[in-house]
Amino acid sequence: MNDKVKEAYNQLANDYEHNVDTKSLFNTEYERPAMMKLLPTDVRDKHVLDAGCAAGWYTSQFVNLGAVVTATDISPKMVEATKRRIGEKAEVFCLDLEKELPFENESFDVIVSSLVLHYIKDWSNPFSEFLRILKPNGTLLFSVHHPFMDIKLSENGDYFSTEYIVDQWKREGKLIDVPFYRRPLQEILSETISYFSLEKIVEPQPTKEFQVKEPEKYEKLMRNPHFFIVKAVKDK
């Protein structure tokens, strides 16, 4: 699975670097605004991990907010894109979140993982590592596919199963197979609270700018959520 995700995102890297920030309303006017609202009020001089940084949009936001930023991604080409974007302003590593992370215990104040965890079948290792490297009272903020969206792509139709799915994305004139895991809402929340204290869950709604640019898609998203956001905290 890791190799397939890496291959998919190596193919998507150019599109993410040059198009997503301006052309993908699902990112710019839907997921990202909702995630940014949930960040701690002041991250200046805080140590922030961008876990699954893609082409570095979140990385650059955290840098601009004055944080000390570390970014990781499983795709070498995404890592290269992030480095081009932020230069020496953050440390960027090519890492697999399913493996042990090369960071000291309690070294981060905030971990942000945007639309990444649904590519991982078993969350026990990433969550164990996030717990280890987060400081007491540190924040974990992550977004994933909404289960109500993913069930529409299901082949077995069993909402309560964890199911491997291969979606196809058309980018730059070619179809790219993008594999991920669909899971029920109770599993997302139960896995989270096994490691962290739940602070907030959000089913984001698109911005008014989304409505102006894509009114039909806006109306669909207002009735059928595509993403699910969780904010959790490490206990003392």
Score class of each variant (00 low, 15 high):
residue 51 A to M: 03
residue 228 F to S: 08
residue 55 A to C: 02
residue 30 Y to V: 09
residue 48 V to G: 04
residue 55 A to K: 01
residue 25 L to A: 13
residue 50 D to F: 04
residue 160 F to P: 13
residue 165 I to N: 02
residue 46 K to P: 14
residue 76 P to G: 04
residue 23 K to Q: 07
residue 223 R to K: 12
residue 47 H to Y: 12
residue 136 P to E: 12
residue 37 K to V: 05
residue 71 A to H: 06
residue 44 R to S: 15
residue 75 S to G: 02
residue 151 I to P: 09
residue 129 E to L: 10
residue 82 T to I: 15
residue 172 E to N: 10
residue 65 L to G: 06
residue 70 T to C: 12
residue 105 N to C: 08
residue 220 K to H: 07
residue 21 D to M: 01
residue 144 V to K: 01
residue 162 T to V: 14
residue 195 Y to Q: 03
residue 180 F to N: 01
residue 126 P to F: 08
residue 126 P to D: 07
residue 90 A to C: 11
residue 228 F to T: 00
residue 72 T to P: 15
residue 93 F to R: 13
residue 12 L to Y: 03
residue 77 K to L: 13
residue 81 A to R: 14
residue 122 D to N: 10
residue 204 P to M: 02
residue 61 Q to I: 03
residue 37 K to M: 13
residue 192 T to H: 09
residue 232 A to V: 11
residue 206 P to K: 02
residue 85 R to T: 06
residue 224 N to F: 11
residue 17 E to A: 13
residue 99 K to M: 14
residue 84 R to C: 14
residue 4 K to E: 14
residue 208 K to T: 12
residue 170 K to D: 07
residue 155 E to K: 08
residue 96 D to C: 05
residue 188 I to S: 00
residue 132 R to G: 10
residue 77 K to Q: 09
residue 138 G to D: 10
residue 52 G to Q: 05
residue 157 G to H: 00
residue 50 D to T: 00
residue 118 H to K: 09
residue 153 L to S: 06
residue 156 N to F: 00
residue 38 L to C: 04
residue 191 E to Q: 07
residue 179 P to M: 06
residue 182 R to H: 14
residue 114 S to W: 11
residue 21 D to I: 01
residue 5 V to E: 09
residue 113 S to M: 05
residue 191 E to Y: 04
residue 201 I to C: 03
residue 226 H to I: 07
residue 195 Y to K: 06
residue 2 N to D: 08
residue 7 E to D: 14
residue 126 P to M: 08
residue 24 S to K: 15
residue 104 E to D: 11
residue 30 Y to R: 06
residue 110 V to A: 04
residue 212 V to F: 12
residue 231 K to C: 00
residue 214 E to F: 04
residue 213 K to E: 11
residue 139 T to L: 00
residue 210 F to I: 05
residue 146 H to V: 02
residue 47 H to F: 10
residue 72 T to A: 13
residue 231 K to T: 00
residue 9 Y to R: 03
residue 59 T to G: 07
residue 137 N to Y: 03
residue 58 Y to C: 06
residue 51 A to S: 10
residue 191 E to K: 10
residue 8 A to F: 05
residue 131 L to Y: 14
residue 61 Q to R: 13
residue 193 I to Q: 09
residue 5 V to Q: 03
residue 171 R to H: 11
residue 53 C to I: 05
residue 56 G to C: 05
residue 204 P to G: 02
residue 135 K to E: 03
residue 55 A to H: 01
residue 217 K to G: 02
residue 199 E to T: 07
residue 196 F to N: 13
residue 1 M to F: 03
residue 113 S to R: 02
residue 226 H to T: 10
residue 107 S to E: 01
residue 185 L to T: 04
residue 10 N to Q: 11
residue 80 E to D: 15
residue 117 L to E: 15
residue 46 K to R: 15
residue 103 F to W: 12
residue 192 T to E: 06
residue 74 I to C: 12
residue 121 K to V: 01
